[in-house]
């Protein structure tokens, strides 16, 4: 006999009022994500996101999330430019997915898929942000003080002057900027890691956008379609803007000597056009 599948796990608890997780103090709205519901569990992400959405729609400009512990999808699709969300704790995967305007600042590490398909806004991480950060982002900034993981900035794109950027204070792993079609990725290596601050298969299939790496990049690290190019004068405003964005976020200074950086750019906007036989025999 198959298990009874109709018994959906209930995230709504009639005895529990989610509003009890919200506190208003000194003009701030504080939401405690670790508030226990009637069954002794932390707020479910659906409840937390619903509270955030309500505050956003009510015009709240500054929300503090405390006790965050793996809550997923925080502020996904939030779209008020003036909204600022401060996160204490460890936000879960897909932080700020489809984000469209607000600023999110994480005092701690972020998990995977931060800023997934982001459109606009800023995500500032005072720590590390792991794999697949900034997937398919089309705009906005992701600023990471520490390191980032694998497959960061995959398939970022730009259009009509709207250009996303990811600045990593430390290092990045393999497949950085795979399928990249636009935008800017900067890896600063502020910790002075030895060897290259980026991994293998760098910019595999890149056909738009630029990756700036402060440090060494060897040929074997490059993915198909990626080439190392000298930094041109015309690249400087873009690089400097990203560096200043990083400085603004962390109140620190970033190295600005262009000679310390290498640029990875697409060999062509159509890296695989010769791969196919369109003859239609």
């Amino acid at each position: 006999m198959p298990a009874d599948v109709w018994g959906e796990r209930k995230h709504k608890d009639v005895r529990f009022d989610p509003a009890s997780a919200v506190e208003r103090r000194d003009g701030l709205v504080i939401i405690r994500a670790d508030t226990k519901d009637g069954e002794g569990r932390m707020l479910h992400y659906k409840v937390l996101n619903d509270l955030i959405r309500r505050e956003m729609l009510a015009g709240t400009r500054h929300i503090v999330l405390e006790g965050v512990m793996g809550h997923r999808y925080i502020a996904s699709t939030a779209n008020r430019k003036e909204l600022y969300i401060e996160i204490r704790g460890t936000p879960g995967n897909n932080l700020g997915a489809f984000l469209d305007g607000p600023t999110i600042e994480v005092f701690g590490n972020a998990q995977d898929m931060t800023g997934n398909t982001m459109n606009a806004g800023r995500i500032i991480v005072h720590g590390n942000a792991w794999d697949v950060t900034g997937l398919a982002a089309r705009g906005g900034s992701i600023l990471i003080k520490g390191n980032t993981g694998y497959r960061v900035g995959i398939h970022m794109k730009e259009y009509c002057g709207v250009r996303p950027c990811i600045v990593v204070g430390g290092t990045a792993k393999d497949y950085l900027g795979e399928y990249m079609a636009g935008g800017t990725v900067v890896v600063l290596n502020l910790g002075g890691a030895r060897g290259s601050p980026v991994g293998l298969h760098l910019g595999a299939g890149i056909h738009g956008g630029k990756i700036f790496v402060r440090g060494k990049v060897e040929d074997h690290q490059l993915g198909p379609g990626a080439t190392v190019r000298p930094i041109e004068e015309e690249d400087l405003p873009e690089l400097l803007w990203c560096l200043e964005e990083f400085e603004r976020a962390f109140h620190t200074s970033a190295p600005k000597d262009k000679n310390e950086y290498v640029k990875i750019a697409p060999a062509s906007s159509r890296p695989f056009s010769g791969h196919y036989d369109p003859t239609s025999v």
């Binding site: 398939h155 794109k157 259009y159 399928y179 079609a181 636009g182 056909h207 738009g208 695989f272």
Partner: peptide, 12 residues
């Protein structure tokens, strides 16, 4: 698609 003119639109 919000991508530049004339580039290949690749889906991973």
């Amino acid at each position: 698609r919000m991508i530049p003119l004339g580039t290949d639109a690749l889906s991973p």
